[in-house]
Design a protein around this nucleic acid. Structure first.
Length: 372
DNA sequence: AATGAACCCAACCGCAATACC
DNA sequence: TGGTATTGCGGTTGGGTTCAT
């Protein structure tokens, strides 16, 4: 049953195209157009099937095809559209002038998908990979006591199901160290990670806005989380027993809205002002926070649970960034960790860029110890 | 320098949808 | 209306290239 594949006919060539074949195809299409792919190869003098000719033309020879690396904006678009459309490569490519579905698909599979996996994000659902994370067992075994530091910590930052388990191990190691009660550098974890990958994971705990994006100072007027998330991806908001727990940035579908609990910074600064903080200009960790409303840290109960609604804190509009004045380059890995040789490659920069949307500026929470 | 591993991407395959007769 | 041809699409492959040891 089924039709015989067109390319199985005798004498039809397969495999890579030669420049001569390309030229024949181009010449023919320029002269006659590409009305009928089945008859085209014969008319063009090509020993190829029509399907092969069509693919070669649409994926490679078309004059309007844009070659070369994907730009940041293109990658951003791909991720966002993929979160909405899934593997509808042609639909995604239609939003990227000059890009083919095949190219988008390849780029996704070879770059974006892997990076998301490394970040502990399921590329299919754009949600944290729950298969890798059984936090309850981790917490249950190591921090069963609800008053334990790790439990409080995890609840505080709302990472029950959104953080790479390796990061949890690091955090666990850190929390069990003797330094917990001290007010330390926010880079403590970074100084103690073992490699780039771990640094990368730690960086996920740092919240910083996209370097191209302006802070939305009207964030305080935004709707509660459940309303915000309703217009974003369905996987972003979680609750646990009526307790709002949410720290996952909804980068993928909503234009990089980063959500944090309200009053987050208030509690934070109350307990442990950032060592680098310049109170006069809201400079924290080298980043000029436009206002105290930028990040609100939660009011904490005895267990550090987050009880207040979350807020959208960032505006996805990309053109009017005020962040370039930051004394620390925001699009450099060296901002947060110094692994590597400091000579960022394109790939490094790309990864750094992507990771920005997952950074949580909370390392000093490790210093906050209202539970002892 | 050699070699194996990992990466990358053009091309292929097969199914589904659509067009045509 | 049903069968066949054509086109579009997404998954997969395989060979060339780059990287790491």
């Amino acid at each position: 049953m089924g039709r015989t594949p067109c390319c199985e006919k005798d004498g039809l060539k397969k495999g890579p195209w030669t420049p001569e074949e390309d030229q024949k195809l181009i010449d023919y299409i320029q002269k006659h157009g590409y009305g009928n792919w089945r008859t085209l190869p014969k008319n063009a003098g090509l020993q190829r099937c029509g399907k092969s000719c069509r693919l070669r033309w649409t994926n490679y020879l078309r004059p309007d095809i844009k070659r070369g690396r994907f730009s940041f904006e293109e990658e951003e678009t791909i991720i966002q559209l993929h979160s909405i459309l899934g593997n509808k490569w042609s639909a995604i490519a239609a939003r990227l002038p000059g890009r083919t579905d095949n190219e988008v698909k390849n780029y996704w599979n070879t770059h974006v998908r892997k990076r998301l996996l490394r970040m502990g994000i399921d590329p299919a659902t754009h949600s944290p990979r729950l298969d890798l994370l059984d936090l309850s067992s981790i917490l249950g075994s190591s921090f069963y006591n609800p008053n334990s530091q790790m439990n409080s910590f995890s609840r505080l930052i709302g990472i029950h199901n959104s953080i790479n388990p390796e990061l949890l191990r690091l955090a666990s190691s850190f929390m069990s160290s003797n330094n917990v009660s001290q007010c330390q550098s926010p880079n403590f974890l970074l100084q103690n990670v073992e490699n780039h990958e771990q640094s990368h994971m730690v960086s996920q705990l740092q919240l910083l806005p996209h370097p191209h994006h302006q802070i939305d100072q009207s964030a305080a007027t935004l709707p509660p989380l459940h309303e915000v998330s309703a217009c974003c991806s369905p996987s972003t908001a979680t609750s646990c027993g009526g307790e709002t727990q949410y720290l996952e940035p909804d980068y993928y579908s909503s234009g990089h809205q980063l959500l944090l609990p309200s009053n987050f910074s208030d509690s934070y600064s109350q307990y442990c002002p950032h060592p680098n903080e310049d109170s006069s200009n809201n400079n924290v960790n080298g980043f000029n926070y436009p206002s105290s409303e930028y990040v609100h840290f939660p009011s904490l109960d005895v267990y550090g649970s987050i009880e207040e609604p979350l807020q959208q804190i960032m505006d996805p509009s990309p053109e009017t960034s005020t962040l370039n004045s930051s004394p620390t380059p925001l699009n450099s890995n060296s901002t947060y960790f110094s692994s590597g040789n400091g000579n960022g490659t394109d790939q490094d920069e790309r990864e750094s860029y992507c990771s920005y949307n997952l950074k949580f500026e909370i390392p000093d929470l490790l210093d906050v110890n209202p539970f002892v």
